[in-house]
Nucleic acid binder design. Structure first.
Length: 113
RNA sequence: AGAGACAACCGGAUGGUCGCCGGCUUGCCCCGAGUUUUCCACUGCGUGGAGCUUGGGCCAAGCGGGAGGAAAGUCCGGGCGCCGUAGAGCGAGGGUGGUGGAUAACGUCCACCGGCCGCGAGGCCAGGGAAAGUGCCACAGAAAAGAUACCGCCUGAGGGGCUGUCGGUCGUCGGCUGAAGAAAAUGGAUAGCCGAGAGCCAACAGUCCUUCAGGUAAGGGUGAAAUGGUGCGGUAAGAGCGCACCGCGGGCGAGGUGACUCGCCUGGCAGGGUAAACCCCACCCGGCGCAAGGCCAAACAGAGAGCAGAGCUGGCUCGGCUCGUUACGACUCUCGGGUAGGCUGCUAGAGCUGCGGGGCAACCCGCGGCGUAGAUGAAUGGCUAUCGGCGGUGGGUGUUCCACAAGCGCGAAGACCCACCGCGACAAAACCCGGCUUACAGGUUGUCUCUGGCU
RNA sequence: UACCCCGUGGUGUAAUCGGUAACACUAGGGAUUUUGAUUCCCUCAUUCCAGGUUCAAGUCCUGGCGGGGUAG
């Protein structure tokens, strides 16, 4: 069970982000919006888009760290997809709620599409 | 004890566990380059493999490191880089504005000067020029800038009105005398005297109105601001007209590097405000910025050259099948510029710190010590434990105070201990540095001021 | 990273060289009307905030806050 989060598990280039957005497969709940695109790497990858409307730099860094931590903890449960995650402007997030949102929005994908 | 002023500083601590980023060392694997004076194979000055050296990538382990006082806003100043420029000056545009210093430089800092505020410690000040010129100053007000006109005050002259006094006069009224006519009664004069009061005339005085000439600038409800202020003298009324003090201008002297200060003499007084209005003066500024700049370099397109093979299929270093036959195609190689992308710039720098010296200080000099973040869809985190900080509530212990006297707590104040609850700010590097400004829970230290009490 | 523009009633806009913040719509209240519509009247502004210059600031200057935009 891998719990690490090296650079190979992230989206690093604009072309990769553009590909995920071009697929236009999104789901959302109150806290976050998630775009997904299947890849052939055998493991999921995560990319984050945090708007300035979320808050100042400290609040945005808080969001990104908690989203990365949630992805790190549950990445073995996820299929091999590229994920772009956008937080919605809301109140201060918690790790448990983000883990739950990410798990339901990604793993529950087969039921909706 | 209370209330303040200024300056400096801290910005939770220690662990556990799972992670992230980069550095060094070691190791596995992969890719590239060099080495034939390291070795082996092949027929050759050549090729291939192994070894060695070196560079890069990925993974793993170990060691040590990893946000701030403002990292923020991007308001100034520099370093650094590229471009432009012979040098210098002028112009445009922008900025700064007491003096002296500090500094790489600054709009920053220090010291001093001046003004304003505060009882004070202290605080604030874009603080040059308004007799170089232009503009503006609403409303109100006589007037908002030439003291000109106006009201007002005073003097003289003319006219007029009113009042008073004296005089004159026409005529009226009352009283007395009483002529002519007549004997008298009577009569009552173109007569006289006395008195009354209105009118008219003249003079004088006072007062008012008006016109003219002159003297004035004291005063004129206003206004943010009114042509030096106050007092005394003076005058027809007044006025720096004269005097005293204050303010202002000029000159001289002394002190200071200077801003400026002090003293003396002198001028009777020039001059409103606004330059964060235009402007003038002095000084400063070439432009753009690390997404600068440098290096490597896919793909596509271009140029040049070369060659016979190309496609499909099975298997691994070759074989089979199909198609094609000498070129404007396809393929291969080379070249320049260079996109995507990568590397670099990238952190040792006007560095931090201790001591000594110089300087009032900002700061500078010398010696010693330290090694202190480098991300790039963007690291410095998640969970948890203990301790500590602040506030509140409750409980306990002991202290002080209670006014003119006594008395006391179920009164007040603050101190210590325990338990529970809550709070724990502002804000995150993005080439670097010096400042400024703004945000900030809570806390620490030093110096100083004022008030009250005690000795 | 660099730069530019804008903040005025609830909304959209005005305000000349600095001189007592104006208009339209909306909302609320009132009048007219038997009632409603129409019409008329009234109310609603710390000019984003804080300082400064000035006699006087929406306007000028400085610093913040917020919003929008441009370039690579």
């Amino acid at each position: 069970m891998s719990q690490t989060f090296p650079k190979s598990r992230r989206l690093l280039k604009s072309t990769e982000f553009d590909a995920v957005f071009a697929a236009r497969r999104s789901r959302a709940d109150k806290r976050i919006v998630i775009y997904t695109l299947a890849n052939e790497l055998g493991h999921p990858r995560l990319g984050l888009v945090v708007s300035r409307k979320v808050g100042n730099a400290v609040a945005r860094n808080r969001w990104k760290r908690l989203l990365r931590e949630a992805f790190r903890l549950i990445q073995d449960e996820l299929p091999a997809v590229d994920i772009v995650c956008l937080p919605r402007p809301s109140h201060s997030p918690t790790l448990d709620s983000l883990t739950e949102s990410m798990r339901t929005l990604i793993c529950g994908k087969e039921g909706s599409r």
